[in-house]
Design a binder for these strands. Structure first.
Lengths: 162, 162
DNA sequence: AGAGGGTACTTGCTGCATCAAGTGATGATT
DNA sequence: AATCATCACTTGATGCAGCAAGTACCCTCT
């Protein structure tokens, strides 16, 4: 037998331990996303991606980012982000402005009202993230979780590009 | 000052390291879900939740589970699962049958065609999971990732229930 | 300067997820 | 035994996500 993990069909299946870990990760992805979304929706009437947009903009110079950059940092596709920003624009939290130097670019800019909304939403959101994630792991565990997540994501990126 | 991590607003914000780790986890959730979905859709015309349904059923006695149990193991809400099973039923991969002893329960049963579909889909899916997750981490890293995921999920569950 | 190619979005269409309300079956209560 | 409460789903309505196609703009190259 060429490989102890391979059955006669030539597929390298997961070991029971690997399967357990993988299913835990799957559970994490669905449940954590859901829980975060719930909290934001309930307390601040925001979807997670909307919160991410506001949070990324407030950290940026001029509280402004190009749509394409914003799409990257919020892990959204450009079509998706475009809709999200339209919704936020209709609520007065963000406005759009074409880049004066190259009108192909569109800048998304956080309004004062957007800053205020984010400031109101942030404490409960941060507390929720703390209670679910940060505070149930030791600093070292959290760091390792982040590192593992990074490794997986960069693997995904290298597959999508290469 | 009562706590070095608290600013004057009384909110315990995330440290830069905590924020980095958290953003990595967020990135993982969105990107990994997306990548897994892409692969399954492209190669097998299945959504991830549909694959999960088939995979959970095939492991069950009689290849059969109650809708409510199936909802738990696939991390789906009952309304969502109901729609998913309807889709799979229309494709002939699953059928429904009311429990003879208590007709409030509905059993979802994997058909032969469903078994075949799963067997066709599994190798590429497993290979994908391997290349993105299992093979980029050491066994110990993977185990720790699983443990951390478990801890977070049980925290979510205790919040939803308690 | 006008055509072609590429970039940076935006939008039409379709299908999916979600909440709330509905349905049918069972058990509990009087 | 008739009503009420509960359970286990299912379904109607609505808004969201995703792909593909479209639009506007810019930069060459001839």
């Amino acid at each position: 037998m060429a490989d102890a993990d391979e059955k006669s069909d030539g597929v390298k299946w997961l070991t029971p331990d690997e399967l357990d870990s993988w299913l835990s990760v799957v559970k994490l992805m669905t449940r954590l996303t859901w829980s975060i979304d719930q909290q934001l929706q309930r307390d601040s009437n925001l979807a997670m991606v909307e919160y991410q947009v506001l949070a990324m903009l407030v950290k940026s110079p001029q509280r402004m980012l190009r749509m394409s950059s914003l799409a990257v940092v919020t892990n959204a596709s450009l079509p998706h982000l475009s809709r999200v920003v339209t919704r936020l624009e209709n609520r007065g939290l963000v406005r759009r402005e074409p880049d004066p130097h190259d009108r192909r670019f569109t800048n998304a800019i956080l309004t004062e009202s957007g800053v205020l909304t984010l400031e109101e939403a942030a404490p409960a959101h941060v507390a929720h993230v703390r209670s679910l994630v940060i505070d149930v792991l030791s600093p070292e565990q959290l760091r390792r979780l982040g590192v593992a997540a990074e490794r997986i994501v960069s693997r995904i990126d290298s597959w999508s590009i290469g």
